[in-house]
Nucleic acid binder design. Sequence first.
RNA 1: GGGCGCAUAGCUCAGCUGGUUCAGAGCACCUGCCUUACAAGCAGGGGGUCGGCGGUUCGAGUCCGUCUGCGCCCACCA
Length: 906
Amino acid sequence: MELSAKYNPAEVEDKWYADWTAKKYFHSEPNEKDPYTIVIPPPNVTGVLHMGHMLNNTLQDVLVRRARMMGKNAIWVPGTDHASIATEAKVVGRLAEQGIRKRDLTREQFLEHAWNWTHEHGGIILKQLRRLGASCDWDRTAFTMDEIRSESVLRVFCDLFDKGYIYRGLRMVNWDPKAQTVLSTEEVVYRDEKSHLFHLRYYVADADTNPVRPTGEEGEVLHQDAQGRYYAVVATTRPETIMGDTAMCINPKDPKNQWLRGHKVVVPLVGRVIPVIEDRYVDIEFGTGCLKVTPAHDINDYNLGKTHNLETIDIFNPDGTISDQSPLYVGLDRMVVRRQIVKDLEAAGLMEKVEDYDNKVGYSERNPDTAVEPRLCKQWFLNMKHFAEIALKPVLDGEIKFHPEKYISSYRQWLENIQDWCISRQLWWGHRIPAYYLPTDSPEEERYVVAMTAEEALEKAHRLPGYENLKPEDLRHDEDALDTWFSSWLWPISLFDGIRNPGNPEIKYYYPTSDLVTAPDIIFFWVARMIMAGEEYMGDVPFRNVYFTGLVRDKLGRKMSKQLGNSPDPIGLIEKYGADAVRIGMLLCTSAGNDILFDESQIEQGRNFCNKIWNSYRLIQGFAVDPAAKQSEAQKVAIRWMRGRLSQVVAEVNDNFAKFRISDALMATYRLFWDDFCAWYLEAIKTPFVDGKPTPMDPQTHAATLGFFDELLRMIHPVMPFITEELWQNLAPRGENETIMFAPMPKGGDTDKAFTDAFAMAADAIMNVRAIRQQKNLSPREPLRLRIKGAFDPEMTAIVCKLGNVSGVELVDGTLADGEGVGFLVGTTEMFVPLKGLVNAEEEIAKAEKDLEYQQRFLASVRAKLANEKFVAHAPEAVIANERKKEADALSRIESLEKQLKALKG
RNA sequence: GGGCGCAUAGCUCAGCUGGUUCAGAGCACCUGCCUUACAAGCAGGGGGUCGGCGGUUCGAGUCCGUCUGCGCCCACCA
């Protein structure tokens, strides 16, 4: 086969991916082998691949491909997530472009649009994963809203309701006015914002009947205007909420505001008269120590309202506009009102002052441009106490391992302070809550049944006194959908239908899954909750290891974002460099939990590696073989050394994978291929050229080389599946159903340490000879001689001659440096390259003197250590022995340097 | 406010149980090479007071304390 000088990924990738999928190599069924299971963190069904997905899914593919080659029955189950808020927002947005408002549609009509959108955009990301080489079991592709998953969700809801964990309650919740739904506390992200602290005047209302009496105490602060009227000053960041004020609160111990006790004040502009209440909650140091209390729109104020029996005035509509409960600004948006009311307050002389202020504002995680509004409403909650307990144990016990471990502490902290999970969302796109309301006498009174279907609900209702004759049309199905995570948390179970059919052969075989690869930002949303569901429904952990990837940032360390335009298109990168290059380029620089700073040069490195592999194969497949050819000494040595190195690196790689030190494992493999195999081994076994043509190779060396190459391809395959399959198929005749995907991962063997060490010494000598040649401006073709005194394995002579272009190695006992030349040390072995007429004695003397000085200092420090009685008494034997060896080595080096100097100085 | 983590070469990071000649890797950089697989390459080379200070120890990038600077997570201070 003719191979081009450069690797061309495009055709190779398409060809092999089509072959793998056609032959169903990624498909798994339970069998007698050990399972290895990964479930994909389901991406948004309508999403597109970004760099984070690339990293995450490449890691999963590496793990699953490796497991497959290690003889496991490996499965990677793919699927997508319905992402209710994000998807519904996109659908609403598209409808808006067509001039359609959601509220003008029925639920059914809206869902039809949503499904159309899903079918149109759904699965793009899964197609993109194929480009990356992802070896997912596509036959099992699931969707959080498909039949099995949906039914599983409803069953779990009913079950948890029956167990008493799910309840309906009136709570202060986080409201997204754009999506018009409640959010869980986890879905609110707080951002620092440059804001203002507005100081408003609340005039004393009852000064006529209840005159203001200064207490005269130290620290008292009264405010009076030009007309002598008294007022309190309230600092707020949200002046637009004053229409909902129902009290002003001071700290009973605040000397500044004692004079306000028992008074009433007037809400500015609004004119409402509200009481001054006292509560130790108020921070005396903040602002003026006067707090306006708006129980409907702030969680703290709500609590104050409860203890002080305050009225609650909800001045916001669900869309964030001002409601008719407010005397002012009705129908205007809250943000518009904030600007307007500031002007109006200033005009009315009710604004004391405005300060700059940094505060944190909560935003919807899925609608990042919308500030979340605290709002009081009735929602469905899951009591988390029980779940926190069952989820904490396996992580603290080490039954589930986190990589890196640092996430254990934040996991623990979250579970120990967990709040109940608000699981209802005022959305249509999602799993509709299986609760059915019964007619009651008053709107305040709520009665409902929870059941899988309306029919079942009706039966349940009929068993309730007073509802024996209820008609189906009298049941009102809850309008709300469940939080998306309420389906995701079942993923490792529901993918194998373990909720609907507990104990089925698949769930028994594939569960618990092996490793989970995910980003740390969903540790609470997803990881923790999967552990809860796993313990609750399977009585077992959902996975053994969680590998947390970092964020992919740009090379300046900035998050990748559309606004900055700093996120490369992953598919574009694959097209430019090839999937293998992108995969290894990303993984070489990622360690668990650390962010990766992405730079295209890393992908270039990956591409260069592809090319290196490709070209080494071009060399190998061009070898001519002659059965009559004799194996050279250098070839023999190289083969034995390479075998040892392979074993060493296999052991190293296994160890690194076991510890999830994946970049280290890959770097070791990378260097084994590039440095050991290409730079040393292949150069060592090349046959000599005669008349400009290479002489044929003996069969043993040829076979060994193909064998090594085969093993190396297998080691590299999990990271670089395409090029390795292409070359592996070329390397030898393969059967119709043979693939590197199922070829066994090399197991290593005897590491042959003494021999690889001897080789390393020879390599050191070779590098020294090359350096001398370079320093002296000699052509690489000019052979040099080498004289050696001291320990040197004579087996290495052939290698030294070949790779150092040394014409002869002379082992000497007596004087090493007779005549002109350059000496150097390898370990404690003295070596000398005779060079007639090329040596500058001055330079050599200077060099040797410098070296001598260093050795003497080193010797002194070692001797100081050995002279220290405490060291000799405390240090382990091996350490002391080593120090003695250092001392001896230094002495021997000093001796040889002194001799060398003597010779140089003549 | 609480918690966690990081600081080692120009950049990105290893350095795992304190002890090999321990100060490393990759990239970048410099020099020389179109050497018959590969210039997307080959050969050679320079480069770090391991953030500061103090402590434990015979011995400290490594353990402890502290300071400085960064990052992340959690939390209802208007």
